[in-house]
Amino acid sequence: MLKYKIFAIFCTTFLTGNAVAENTILVQSTTSTKNSGLYDHILPLVKQETGVTVYVVAVGTGAAIKNAMNCDGDVLLVHSRKLEDQFVASGYSKKRYDVMYNDFIIVGPNDDPAGIAEMNDAVAALKKIAVTESRFTSRGDDSGTHGKERSLWKRTGVNQDASSGSWYLETGSGMGATLNTAVGTEAYTLSDRSSWEVHANKSDFKVMVEGDKRLFNPYGVMLIDPVRCPSVNSNGGKAFIDWLISKNGQQAIARFKVAGKQMFFPNAQ
């Protein structure tokens, strides 16, 4: 008898506990925002002030956009301006909103084999890494960070892809996994600041390059077009976006700190 009872409980748990409840939205977003703990900080406030329950899927920006194009989600919150503009231009969303920004940094081992510590020219630093053939780990996953890194390499004139597998290592993984690889192989890597700050496995790694205005990292938010994707909960999605760019939302983002440091800087217009 007990067996049947347990089985019945399982069944009811799963057949009735559907995630797509009335005031629920799914946000396709990036690991950088999720892993930093930003969502843990703001989502309870969203729930409290708008009544919307937000679930977040954290993948690379490229994957998040592809999922959104498959209509698997209601809102897209990512950091790759070029891809976001394409997304809007292709009609997957009516409008992109600025939400916040932070910056990218280049981190590396304390030994600093390429001698780039305290530089503030990211392109020159990458060039030095290439010249000294110091190891560099790349996301290699079409994420926002990966896109930024490739645009920086382009400015150096170095064909880093030709050295893929020797000193240029493409992990094809998320930021955390790539940082783990960098630490494990004493390699430099480009990271967004929040991912780096919350990453626990830092070993003797330090921030080597920061402050270049080309390392600007803006985040945008978009409602997936409900005409294109009828499954989109546009009321819930709109409420979430409106809150993010409202005074309350912007202040909440500014208040979010890791180890006493502000992680994201609100910039909604």
Partner: peptide
């Protein structure tokens, strides 16, 4: 997804990716 679809193995993957080895 936290509180919805996070299971032991995906939690392990997540903590690994956060460097919380």
């Amino acid at each position: 997804i936290d509180h919805l679809t996070r299971v032991m193995t995906t939690a392990i993957a997540l903590e690994t990716s956060k460097g919380e080895l």
